[in-house]
Design a protein around this nucleic acid. Sequence first.
DNA 1: CGGGATTTTGATTCCAATCAAGTCCGGTGG
DNA 2: CCACCGGACTTGATTGGAATCAAAATCCCG
Lengths: 232, 232
Amino acid sequence: MPAQISLVVDRLPPAAAIARARPWLKDSPSARDFVSRGSAPLSHYEPDQEIFGEGDRAEAVYKIVSGVVRTCRFLSDGRRQIEAFLLPGDLMGLEAGAVWTLSAEAVTDCTVAVYRRRQGESFSLEDESLTPQLLSYAMRSLARARSHMFLLGRRSALEKVATFLVNWSDRAQNGQSCTLPMTRQDIADYLGLTIETVSRTLSQLERDKLIELPSAREIRLKDREALREFNI
Amino acid sequence: MPAQISLVVDRLPPAAAIARARPWLKDSPSARDFVSRGSAPLSHYEPDQEIFGEGDRAEAVYKIVSGVVRTCRFLSDGRRQIEAFLLPGDLMGLEAGAVWTLSAEAVTDCTVAVYRRRQGESFSLEDESLTPQLLSYAMRSLARARSHMFLLGRRSALEKVATFLVNWSDRAQNGQSCTLPMTRQDIADYLGLTIETVSRTLSQLERDKLIELPSAREIRLKDREALREFNI
DNA sequence: CGGGATTTTGATTCCAATCAAGTCCGGTGG
DNA sequence: CCACCGGACTTGATTGGAATCAAAATCCCG
């Protein structure tokens, strides 16, 4: 397990990194607002580094400033379910209890702002000025968890993959073409499929001329409407 | 579709109904507290009656006083995914937007307390004294949505059904034996399975001596630990 | 240019869906 | 009281879609 060395940095990552044409590396305006008004310390993580682990004490809430994070749960037999991919501006770590019920890991290089929780029976942050925002964040997380739930139950591989592509490209808006920062394994674990099935399904969507795959991590949605129809 | 006739009653259902040995018909202490301190109107619904429908304006939050409710989403091809079964004390209807993203229907006869939302951009109730409780309700709903999500992805029918039984009997605590108010179709739609698979799986659990099925709706968990091991 | 990881493709298996009968109740009326 | 009806549930036979097992192709990154 990676040691907790030099995780906390006191500045944003170099502009050069942000300048690359990877939208999830840019810090969002809302994240910037959030950061600039408070004195929340920033932490930086490298790909696949753990941000927090299921079972550890949950002592903070995190806001993604730049990069992509995945939250997930591991089963004892090695299966992994990814709960969500988080982008700049997203909040993570709203836990009712004092212990993480899931893990968070960096997908790409990423920076997160840390807001410490107050000790006590009910949920609150040390910086009380953020409390009013928490309910709306919680409701947004709930809505996302629900739509992910609906995607996992009794949907075909085609429906799952097509819906994932549309949702991802909507969130990481970069027009027609979108870059996937996550591996096929990540997508599979997010959709409750295997890498082989994800790969086959992408190939089929390409044969059917709904998408183009210039490279494995680069996807052009050629017929967004047709893809959207797989959702429902 | 059922007309909205005489849904609103101004008193709890007859004691006789509550007296039946069905735990979910008893109103919970917390529900009673919630009701007695406020002036929230109560509504009563019959089995399979709609409480609110996906797409309608979301103008209230509901608290279950007695009975069992299911929340669900329908797909255009007739598939249905049940999001949750709600018991007395549970809150439902935390929606970020102004429109329901799911429907709620009575599973049994049930009574719910209605808390009207205030009009406006951010979420709030007319009775402001309830606001502090909303965040903890939201976080509880989120935790449930997540564990349901984890149950739907890449889990076998055996794991799904066993976990459902343990979770249900924990929540509707009535010791070894538990009564299922919902149909096999409800269970199937909750777990992302078909009725046949649910039925077969229950039969297999009975053959394996992990449960007993005195009748279709009555289940005795003979080996709770073994059942619990299917979860993970 | 090489080498390992990632991704794709192919062959086969297996679990759950589907299609199709039964069976078991719970209620109703003769 | 019992025969009957209809819905809920169970069981059986078969199919189908995704998992698994296996191998090839491709992409990075040094």
